[in-house]
Amino acid sequence: MKKKYAGALRAAFPYTVPIFASFWFLGLTYGIYMNVSGFSFWYPCLMSLTIFAGSVEFVAVSFLLGAFNPFQALAMTLMINARHLFYGISMLEKYRGTGLKKLYLIFGMCDESFSINYTAKIPPGVDKGWFMFFVTLLNHFYWFFGATLGGLFGSLVRFNTEGLEFVMTAMFVVIFMEQWFKDRQHTGAVGGLLLSAVCLWIFGPERFIIPSMAAILLALTFARGRLEKGGATEE
């Protein structure tokens, strides 16, 4: 039994190293932001544990600083996190049969956990469920660790990390490429890039995600006959 956990943890860890680099840094930034906004470290500590969705946690700071308006907070959260709906639809099959762990896998399905768990080539002999569990747990821990540290020592940190945030972009480019190598044809990948870029250009950085999702959904629905006939969707 013990061997099973250790094997899965050992297989999962290397995939999470880039996320360690970006999450402690982003988490730290978030904790510092909370700290200078006048909140005790308990806030980033508890919020990083319970929300675990980076972008919305940054926005939540402005909810907390503004007037009490839970409906607006809910609406904003749903909009920012709507992309998780896509992740869930994509993971329906992969999370199947993972037992109680499934609850935690869904709870912790941030962009990075989803991307790794969807694309990782899990070595034979390694338990799939535990692999995905450890990927999620490690990511969650990195985020929590950075956010709490930032909240505690926020005002003391001074070093030149300018540009480190690019680690996230680099990771998604690599994941995009891995998916590209796997697919036999690339309508979806190219469509996703182009449609999002066009929506970004039209709607601007704050509100392009929902239109992008709608455009992608429409395009994939219309292309279904062609894509399924072309054998692009075989597992």
Binding site: Y87, S90, G188
Partner: peptide
């Protein structure tokens, strides 16, 4: 239809995430 989306969405979503970054 949902199964189909589950198979073809990720490639498009990874493209969207690159743009998002």
């Amino acid at each position: 239809y949902i199964k189909y989306l589950g198979r073809v969405l990720p490639a498009a979503v990874f493209g969207m995430l690159v743009v998002y970054c």
